[in-house]
Amino acid sequence: MMYTLLLGTILLNQLAPQEPLVWPPPPETPRIQMIGILARTTDLGESWLRRLVRVLTGQKEPWMFFQPYGICVDDSGNIYVADQGLRSVVILNLEKKTRRVLHTSGRGYNLQWPQDVAVWEKGNLLFVAEPEQRAVLGFDRTTLKLKLRYAFEEWIRPVSLAIDPERDILYVSDSKGHAIYLVDLEREGLIDKWGERGSEPGQFNFPTHITVDREGRLYVVDMGNFRIQVFDPSGELLSFFGEPGDRPGAFARPRGIAVDSEGHIYVCDAMFAGFQIYDIYGRLYLFVGGVGTDFGQFSMPGDIAIDQQDRIYVTDPFNHRIQIFQYLKEPED
């Protein structure tokens, strides 16, 4: 809690709206609060000397991202952002105020179109999905050196990654192959494939984004069927919900998905310019967002990630930024 407040004040200094921006708006009990925006490199702080030079020379604050899309966070507070415009992965730490950029220039292994990122804490690896190379690259998290390269023949277009830290399994969604692949990280081999193309429960039609919650359940955005499917670790279909439409709660162009500590499902939607929050039965709780460039507004949001403190990170590619929200829990008695 202290850490959240501290981070909030750091971000609030420059980046957050003057008045607290919450959803749902008052007089309802607020559930989601906007706590900041990451857009310029100076949003992480800059030294007074740098600032002086910048003000005297009249330089503008440089952008931190060009086209951020895939995003994930780890337990130690690092934010990993795949930026296709920079052709790199930007690694931020808001606590230490550091920014590192992973852009490999190794022969044959350079990042072309990094689509999604995922972190395996136990193996200290950062995985990057490279759909154009039909591969998933594994980098050492501290040295940023290339360690692994998974490229199986079955993969057509690996676009999204999720890691089950309990079972050491990397889930890879193949949007053009219409399936989910399971990679055993310990034995470094493909162990299973779930689903094929179709509209029945358990089948997929362009599974574009996936995520794993704390109990190991896998959530799949089944984009072509306009629904969310939830699987347990053994591959049993637990739940599916959703239909195409423009009413609140329906899916128009669903994108990134994430789950918070209480099991709420957050799904970005490019057409609605925001994200919607559901429970596992598909009941809509809240819509957050709006069209524009202001605080809390999006133009075609991309991916979403939620960290241990229930902070919500949403990439906003056309506004070249990341927006950070906080889920406000019920106060415990």
């Binding site: 060009f66 086209q67 899309y69 895939g70 296709q84 415009g85 072309q112 179109w113 689509q115 759909p131 154009e132 057509i156 277009r157 676009v159 999204s160 949007s175 053009k176 362009f206 574009t208 984004h209 984009m223 128009a252 162009r253 994108r255 490019a270 057409m271 075609m300 991309g302 590619p317 056309f318």
Partner: peptide, 24 residues
């Protein structure tokens, strides 16, 4: 069109053999 064709290539739309319509 962009609501689908700006997601960095998730759906798999190819603009050229090695190129995609990016995010900007």
């Amino acid at each position: 069109c962009l609501a689908c064709h700006s997601d960095g290539g998730n759906i798999g739309q190819k603009m050229r053999s090695d190129r995609l319509l990016g995010l900007s």
